[in-house]
């Protein structure tokens, strides 16, 4: 049975698109058939994070308006068999698609994929409504900052009001050194405040920046973020994976990089 997962956060810039790209790629690496849909109409980014920006012909709005078939708009990622991207339109706005059209589109594509992952725009307006319309499961992305957590809480309330079956939390950009010093909320604090199940902690890692620059998701690499995203993918498909303690490794690496910075 296919699952439709929306990746959302409320606040912008917390890592929805990065999470989408990595979870989608990671699931494809686990042998699943995955479709990524970028619902951020007017501000499309998932294509560039995935490194597929040069292959766009048609987009989500074209499909919704019936200008092309869904199959024509979907871009197959050649690096990962089973992974497809349905890009968003760059020159339109959020009102170009209605929630009913999204539901219809997802219903139509559901039987071809194991997972459909929707990249939700920031905010709680039309774009958010479009993104959640066809989904039955959500990954809420937050960073351990007051503004992101407050927005995540609002989003969780809205998802609960829309009868979502499963809402899981991804804590992004956690800095273990700051947590240790007491200057950042710990993952336990964030889970306690938001009170939804935790599905993954992604440490603040420069490898994410590097991989985004290159257009190749970090998932599965032997970096901290790569491993964290791989574990999230295993948990998404229902496997139990222990949470890795990056604390030791991280403080070691900060020490090493610290030495170089001083020189």
């Amino acid at each position: 049975m296919s699952e439709v997962i929306v990746v959302t956060s409320g606040k912008g810039g917390v890592g929805k698109t990065t999470t989408c790209a990595n979870v989608g790629t990671g699931l494809a690496k686990l042998g699943k058939k995955v479709l990524l849909i970028d619902t951020d109409i007017g501000l499309r980014n998932l294509d560039v994070v995935m490194g597929l920006e040069n292959r766009i012909v048609y987009n989500l709005v074209d499909v919704a308006e019936g200008k092309c078939r869904a199959k024509q708009a979907m871009i197959k990622d050649k690096r990962h068999p089973g992974l497809c991207l349905l890009p968003s339109a760059q020159t339109r706005d959020k009102s170009a698609v209605k929630p009913e059209q999204m539901v219809k589109l997802i219903e139509q594509l559901k039987n071809q994929f194991d997972y459909i992952i929707l990249d939700c725009p920031a905010g709680i307006e039309q774009g958010f409504k479009n993104a959640i319309a066809g989904a039955n499961r959500a990954l809420v992305v937050t960073t351990p900052e007051v503004s992101a957590i407050r927005d995540a809480d609002r989003i969780i309330g809205l998802l609960e009001a829309n009868c979502f079956e499963k809402i899981d939390l991804v804590i992004n950009r956690l800095r273990y050194d700051l947590v240790k010093r007491g200057d950042m909320m710990s993952s336990a604090d964030v889970v306690d405040i938001l009170s939804i199940p935790l599905i993954g902690i992604v440490p603040d890692d420069e490898s994410v920046v590097i991989s985004t620059n290159q257009g190749e998701p970090v998932v599965g690499n032997s970096t901290m973020a790569g491993e964290a995203y791989r574990n999230i993918c295993h948990r998404v498909i229902g496997e139990e994976v222990p949470f890795i303690e990056f604390e030791k490794g991280f403080s070691f690496w900060t020490k090493v990089t610290g030495i170089f910075r001083k020189n």
């Binding site: 900052e145 007051v146 957590i149 407050r150 809480d153 609002r154 309330g157 700051l178 947590v179 010093r181 007491g182 200057d183 950042m184 909320m185 710990s186 604090d189 306690d192 405040i193």
Partner: peptide, 20 residues
């Protein structure tokens, strides 16, 4: 208190009034 705990306590109070 550490700034992390300040953030946590502020959020706890803020979110409850947000929720109701």
């Amino acid at each position: 208190k550490s700034s992390g705990n300040i953030a946590r306590d502020r959020l706890k109070i803020l979110l409850i009034s947000d929720r109701v």
